[in-house]
Design a protein around this nucleic acid. Structure first.
Lengths: 242, 242
DNA sequence: CGTGTGTTTGATCGCTTTCAAGTTCAGTGG
DNA sequence: CCACTGAACTTGAAAGCGATCAAACACACG
């Protein structure tokens, strides 16, 4: 917005040059002109753990790109039971196009930084840019694959298999390298036991017990409850049921 | 293919004129020229119950529109456990664009009629028609909403609530009218007890027991195992957990 | 009329939940 | 520096729900 030397359409806005969303996210589908137009209306926001991005059945007021952190998508039943139906990481696009109401609520699972856009700006851009729509379709298809994968876990795996699958999912997000060989991975869980339980369709006690079992079996190390060490990821895989 | 009066680009192929997919499905996004081009390579196929449309981890050889019947999408674990991760009805589009391998297998749950297209033809058409891509995005978003809805059912509902939710889902497909008021609905289940169990993450025995419980409670009538009567759909809703 | 498949029903088992204490740990104030 | 506090997590014991094993039933088909 400030130190631009000369006006030239090949320039991308400063805030965008270093942005991951421009490389791997939906913004990569936009040309410099479109980026500049979008930037005029976008704002970078920091959200604390637990902050609500979109309320259930709330009017959708905007869209956003996740720049860092983890966002959980939650669905609840009238009696208070909750299920996490999706986890989103940078540089995912957040929001449900072509629908006035959201069917899920979105909350920051960790501290989160987003680049948020007004509803109008994004919808206008979708109409004029088939590449953006293509990019959205690809992300949506990926999310659908993930959701279906998780349905198998929710419907058919045991508690132990669910917890093992969850650890592998997070390990893979932290370090997307191939863990099929025996190479140690260490990371901090981005979620509390309650959130893990809500993601796996279990209770906190069951999650805790399965983690203890994995620890006693020597498959994982647990430190300060949040820090996990996988000495042998491929061994954990044999616990995940496939 | 025969009784066309004169050649004119505003004519749509005969096979398409009465096709539901042209009104509510993805073909509605195509103009007459595109329809004619696609029709040249498409074939109408009848599939018996149980026939496999796409094998898991098989190369995707084509796409299809469902003209009638029910298709189930299945994911399995190495030890044989299975979970149905999606049900598709006419006029849904079948197939996973932009990916060489399918992560699910698709089977006909009932007798099914599809209009199937070669991979190449559809992918070329997607590239040249933003409307088609838009239509695909809308269907994919709807499928994602359905998948997430079902994740809540799989993860957090009791067996009784799952079965009640399933009956309401099917009733709604058979007769999409609003069932919130007390109006009787009757229909045939398009799936066996085993398939229902695989959809709900339960066993056949549990599904059967919950159906008898609903029958004894007077919420449903069951005839010849497949035929269901809902005298009071709104009463069934109170069993579905929300 | 038997055979086979799909469904229902019954009895028992075991995993996950529930209820109830303990434990750990970070933050706070004496 | 250390005891206090509260939240998150772990552990234990008991109960309950759905799975498993087993048998009976129903209906289609030869």
């Amino acid at each position: 917005m400030n130190d631009r030397q000369d006006v030239h359409t090949s320039d991308v806005p400063v805030l965008c040059v270093a942005c991951e969303a421009r490389h791997r996210g939906v913004c990569g589908a936009l040309d410099a002109d479109q980026l500049v137009a979008l930037m005029k209306t976008s704002t970078k926001k920091r959200l604390e753990t637990g902050a609500e991005l979109v309320g259930d059945a709330e009017a959708i007021e905007g869209y956003a790109n996740i720049l860092s952190g983890v966002v959980k998508l939650i669905k609840g039943l009238p009696d208070g039971r909750e299920q996490i139906v999706g986890l989103q990481f940078a540089p995912d696009f957040l929001g449900r196009p072509f629908q006035s109401e959201s069917a899920v609520s979105a909350q920051a699972a960790t501290n989160v930084v987003v680049c948020s856009f007004p509803k109008r700006a994004v919808e206008a851009l979708i109409k004029q840019s088939p590449q953006l729509e293509h990019s959205l379709l690809k992300q949506t298809l990926r999310e659908l694959d993930e959701a279906r994968n998780w349905m198998l876990t929710l419907g058919r795996k045991s508690a132990l298999e669910k917890v093992a699958s969850y650890l592998l999912l997070i390990a893979n997000y932290i370090d997307p390298a191939d863990h099929s060989h025996a190479e140690a991975v260490a990371f901090d869980l981005p979620m509390s036991r309650l959130e893990i339980a809500d993601f796996l369709g279990l209770t906190i006690e069951t999650v805790s017990r399965q983690l203890t079992k994995l620890r006693i079996d020597g498959v994982i190390q647990v430190r300060q409850s949040r820090h996990i060490v996988l000495d042998n990821p491929s061994r954990l895989k044999t616990y995940s049921g496939g």
